[in-house]
Nucleic acid binder design. Structure first.
Lengths: 149, 149
DNA sequence: AAAAAAACTTGCAACTTGCAAATAATTTGA
DNA sequence: TCAAATTATTTGCAAGTTGCAAGTTTTTTT
């Protein structure tokens, strides 16, 4: 049987390159980590620092400083949680939303280009498979999350 | 229609956590980048520095130093290419092979655990899909490789 | 051969990392 | 009710990582 890990390793490496290549979409040259942070803030509804850091598997102290840099370039906003003032809620600024949307658009364009080499049945099969994988990975909590979280 | 990028983003993030979690397999606590380097040297046949650095999308100067650190902990060997002595061929030491194999074993164990939540048809569908994806990504060179390479 | 190119290494200055300790707000439990 | 424990986040620090520019060594070109 083929080496399953190898298939995944190559695929995720390529997807990583795609993400890296999209860091300059939206007229803003950010780092890969910053791009991931924008993505995750956009995905969650007013998440706290902890929530985003945990989702990304980033040390909270490192994360704190990454967020500071994103606030400095005006892509991210921090609002104290009125219900618990230890907590800071994160959200994207208008420009942050624009950058995140540009990156997302570019990523989906790349993905469409990749799918253009498949017929429609193959494409649907692949998308269905990724969903299956995500569900299975969610069930199998232990291995696919950070040791800390 | 669902957001395809989101499906990929979450899946590759989880696979990244798996890779990170396996860095201590083989009784050796290495960094994620070092694990990727071991993997890639193992995969290619006596590759040059350039070849591995390019495959991983790492700057060659950074890579040079990462390799030095792997040589220092005796996981990697560097042999001058007899045909072109500018070139250094990379290979794993016996211990490097052991560590790489341990990581690979642990990764495949994790993957098996994930597949245990699927029936056999689903598993085969998923594996087939990843192959399709890799072929399509290889055809669509532009987006899924480094800007430099 | 001299000049250009290729494969790699080193110096440097900027950035990133995570641990330990600090601060600030909230919860717990006498 | 108030001191102690807990939680969310930030800062100091020292170690590690980054990539550019400039270096060495070897090979290719002219």
């Amino acid at each position: 049987m083929e080496n399953v890990r190898e298939l995944f390793q190559i695929m995720t490496r390529r997807f990583g390159f795609m993400n890296k290549n999209c860091c300059s979409a939206g007229g803003c040259d950010i780092s890969l980590i910053q791009s991931h942070i924008l993505y995750e803030i956009d995905r969650q509804h007013k998440p706290s620092m902890q929530q985003v850091a945990e989702a990304l598997g980033t040390d909270i102290t490192t994360f704190s400083r990454q967020v500071q840099s994103l606030i400095k370039i005006k892509l991210v906003k921090k609002t104290p949680d009125p219900d618990d003032r230890r907590v800071n809620l994160l959200s994207l600024t208008t420009e942050g939303k624009y950058v995140a949307a540009s990156i997302d658009r570019q990523m989906n364009e790349y993905l469409n280009e990749i799918f253009s080499y498949m017929n429609n049945f193959e494409k649907e099969t692949v998308i269905h498979s990724i969903k299956l994988l995500n569900e299975a990975m969610a069930k199998s909590g232990q291995c696919c999350s950070t040791p800390s979280g």
